[in-house]
Amino acid sequence: MSILNYLVLSGILFSIGAVAVIVRRNAIVAFMGVELMLNAANLTLVTFARMHGDLTGQVIAFFVMVVAAAEVVIGLAIIVSIFRTRGSASLDDASLLKS
């Protein structure tokens, strides 16, 4: 098995996450797509760290994790407050600027 397999898997996961962000209407599901993309990028970082024998990639992946955790907290808080005011978590319903 080649170490490239990890990169291929990470590419597949990243594409699935990207399509989920575009296709799904539910804000929470789209948000989980973002998380999947971040994790796929992390797998790439870890694999490249191993390929080059340099731990810096793992440190960057650690930073990605921290920022993703903060981003999840804020994003979910926004989803909850939008749900409270509009009664819906659908991305299509947040179209105040259109009308």
């Binding site: 929470i28 989980m32 749900f83 978590a89």
Partner: peptide, 20 residues
Amino acid sequence: AVMMLFVFVIMLIGVDAKES
């Protein structure tokens, strides 16, 4: 932490909210 936070929010805004 993150996925359980997701589950909490799913419970908070309605588990059976249907997606059109």
